[in-house]
Structures are given as structure tokens and as C-alpha cells.
């Protein structure tokens, strides 16, 4: 509860700081819009020449894309900037300040800087989800929507945990520029229907478990997957965060101050 309150305060503080420069803040909308639109345009161009890509029609594909954008918004506006800064903090010695604070160092490292443009990115993602969801024509029952939201939250947690685990080697390597390439790779996979990959790769994507980020929530909503598969994502998220926590503690023990 204490950390939830702290998260709220930090989000509020970041919002105030970033809204000081209103034009800058509002420019976040075209920033996210350009990325979203580019992906949607590519899908529409592909579907000019075909009605279906395997079992996916264009609106189902856009539903998957929208789901990914919602997951990505939380991740790339909150976790990614902080993970990118971690390397500089270790080099400059400012990581010492974090360790001295009377709150959990992992929580602070993950959340102290928030790109509040997240609101626009998330909004655009949900607009895509709702628009394509209506076009797909499935009845939006409360159970279906709740299950979708639950699996989506689990997907976001998995996304964050995966990248966090990839970033922990920073304590040995110091520079982790590769994190952006891993992010791009996961983003590339998560925006595509997994049916396009060979079976072995799909199984691997369930093990890693990148499949749960956006594919599983979208498929559960669209009726392409059993809800039980979605339920697995909740356990996978919990498990991954435990692993991330253990690795973080190991990393911090290894850290030697240079300030």
C-alpha cells in the first residue's frame, strides 16, 4: 500500500514537472501518433492485397497491435527510460544515493522517472483496441473484457520483468545499450500473430514467455485461445518478478561504489 501511494505521488510529481512546458507535453501526442499510424498504415497496405493473413483478418490484427501498444506504453514510458539511466548512475556513482534512500532500491530505480506521454500512448492503444474490437463484431461481455484486462496487466508485468532481467547484468557490464535492441526484438515479435512463426519458435515464445505480452490477451478476447492459457500468464508474471527480484539483489550485492 505504501508503495502504491508512493507511485501515485511520483507520477503526480512527474506530471507536474512535464506539464510545466505545455507545448512540449502536448507534442507527445503526435510523437506517439506517428509510431502508431505507421504500423496501422503498413497493416492496411498489406491487407490491400489479401483478406486474411493465415487466420487473422485486418481488424483482428489491429486489435493485436493496439493491445501491444497499451502494453508498450506502460513499459517504454516508465521502465525503459529508467533502465537506460541505470548504466549512467553506476558510472557516476549516483546509484549510491538510491541505495541510501529509505525505500526499496528496485522500486525507486524502476519508477523515479516517468514519461507522462504514457497517457497519450495508452490512449492511442485503447482507441485502436476499441475501434478494431467493434469492427471484429464480437460481443463485449463484462467477463471477456475483465479477463482481457487482467491478462493485459499480466502481459505488461511480464514485459517489464523480462527487460529488467536483461538489464541486471549492468552490474558486471556497465553499459547495456543492447537493451534497446532486445526491446525492439520483443516489440517486433509481440506485434505479430504467432501463427506466422514455426511451431518450435512458438513453443519457445511461450517458454521465454514473450507470447504472453500481447498475443495471449488479444487471442483470449478474440476467442482464438482458451482462457486457461491466459491464466498461465498471471503465474508467469509472478514467477518472473520473483526471479527479477532475486537477480536484482545479487546485482546490488556485487555493486561497488565509485563516488
Amino acid at each position: 500500500m505504501k508503495y502504491l501511494r508512493l507511485f501515485g505521488k511520483m507520477a503526480g510529481f512527474n506530471l507536474k514537472v512535464q506539464m510545466q512546458y505545455r507545448v512540449n507535453f502536448l507534442l507527445q501526442l503526435p510523437f506517439h501518433l506517428s509510431w502508431t499510424l505507421k504500423e496501422v498504415v503498413v497493416i492496411f497496405l498489406m491487407y490491400r492485397y489479401t483478406d486474411r493473413i493465415l487466420t487473422w483478418d485486418r481488424y483482428e490484427y489491429i486489435f493485436l497491435l493496439g493491445t501491444y501498444f497499451v502494453a508498450d506504453s506502460i513499459f517504454s514510458c516508465i521502465l525503459l527510460p529508467n533502465l537506460s539511466n541505470l548504466s549512467a548512475q553506476l558510472v557516476n556513482g549516483t546509484f549510491d544515493h538510491i541505495l541510501l534512500k529509505p525505500i526499496d532500491s528496485q522500486f525507486y530505480t524502476m519508477t523515479y522517472e516517468m514519461g507522462i506521454g504514457v497517457l497519450f500512448a495508452m490512449l492511442l492503444g485503447f482507441v485502436l483496441v476499441i475501434w478494431s474490437g467493434v469492427r471484429v463484431g464480437l460481443p463485449a461481455s463484462a467477463g471477456r473484457v475483465l479477463a482481457y484486462l487482467l491478462f493485459l496487466v499480466a502481459g505488461i508485468a511480464i514485459y517489464g520483468a523480462l527487460l529488467f532481467i536483461c538489464a541486471v547484468p549492468v552490474f558486471c557490464l556497465i553499459r547495456i545499450d543492447y537493451i534497446h535492441n532486445i526491446f525492439l526484438c520483443i516489440a517486433n515479435i509481440s506485434r505479430k500473430p504467432l501463427e506466422v512463426f514455426p511451431d518450435l519458435v512458438v513453443k519457445l515464445l511461450y517458454v521465454i514467455p514473450v507470447a504472453f505480452i500481447s498475443y495471449v490477451p488479444a487471442c483470449c478476447y478474440l476467442g482464438k485461445l482458451d482462457l486457461k492459457v491466459g491464466a498461465v500468464s498471471v503465474f508467469a508474471a509472478a514467477l518472473l518478478w520473483r526471479l527479477a527480484r532475486a537477480l536484482w539483489k545479487m546485482g546490488v550485492r556485487r555493486y561497488v561504489s565509485v563516488s
Partner: peptide, 22 residues
């Protein structure tokens, strides 16, 4: 790591287009 990731992205592109051409 960056090199490996670039190879993977190339492969992903190939699989998507293979599905489009099915």
C-alpha cells in the same frame, strides 16, 4: 548482443511475409 538481435529481426520479417504469401 546487438548483432544477434538484428539477425532475429531479419528472420521475423521473413516469417511475416511468408504468412502473407500463404
Amino acid at each position: 548482443i546487438s548483432v544477434v538481435m538484428r539477425f532475429i529481426v531479419v528472420l521475423l520479417t521473413l516469417y511475416l511475409w511468408k504468412a502473407v504469401y500463404a
